[in-house]
Amino acid sequence: MTTLLKAHELRHSFGATPALDGVSLEVRRHEILAVVGESGSGKTTLLNVLAGRMNADQGTVHYHDGANLRSLSELGERELHRLQRARWGFVEQNPRAALRLNITAGGNIGERLMAAGDRHYGNIRAIATHWLEQVEIDPKRLDDLPMNFSGGMLQRLQIARMLVTEPELVFMDEPTGGLDASVQARVLDLIRSLVRRLGLAVVLVTHDIGVARLLADRLIVMRQGLIVESGLTDQVLDDPHHAYTQLLVSSVLPA
């Protein structure tokens, strides 16, 4: 499998706190990479740096655009922005932060299409309807405001809004973290089937080993800004080598 994203020796501190302390990794096309670790271990910081939302103090992130490996810092703001709005996607833990709650479901899903230049109202609606179906929301809700949606529906709407440009790489930060356990299972199932069907590459941040086990091909375990262990999900979880991973797997650590 070809490399899609490559991070080299990322370091970042907030004041005296080292959030990333020399992190290198690769994300391959069509694979799901989970980043696990306790709260404060640097997962969100890593995700933001990988997604070009934040610059690390040191280190590089390269993206393979199909032809070349290109450094994010050399892309320029405009090209990076375009990448983020079309070929990449980001799923926030809190869908309310990503969605426009006073805009209809259709308008929310259509925004990325319109930003990319689609100027056909009927076409935008047809595509939005398709994606509502894909995330198992009744297409009759197309013209409803998300204000009245349940938490699980909001999260699925956020996913539809992001998938509408058919991205190849998606970043997710605790995508089910804010949901009730019963709702979580459904959203996870949905993510799993969509990701496989669409052949997405995903970087998934979670503190929940169960989520990683369900979704991820590969896993990296972070602690205090460092990768302490990585490998195929089943191997790492069934036979953890590092003492910290062993604690995580036996769920002794607080989330």
Binding site: E77, R78, H81, R85, R100, I103, T104, G106, G107, G110, E111, R112, M114, A115, A116, R119, Y121, I124, D143
Partner: peptide, 16 residues
């Protein structure tokens, strides 16, 4: 960035 998607969202909402 010539990112005017949001402006079109407003027109989309008007038509809807």
């Amino acid at each position: 960035l010539a990112d005017y998607g949001a402006m079109h969202v407003k027109l989309y909402e008007d038509i809807t």
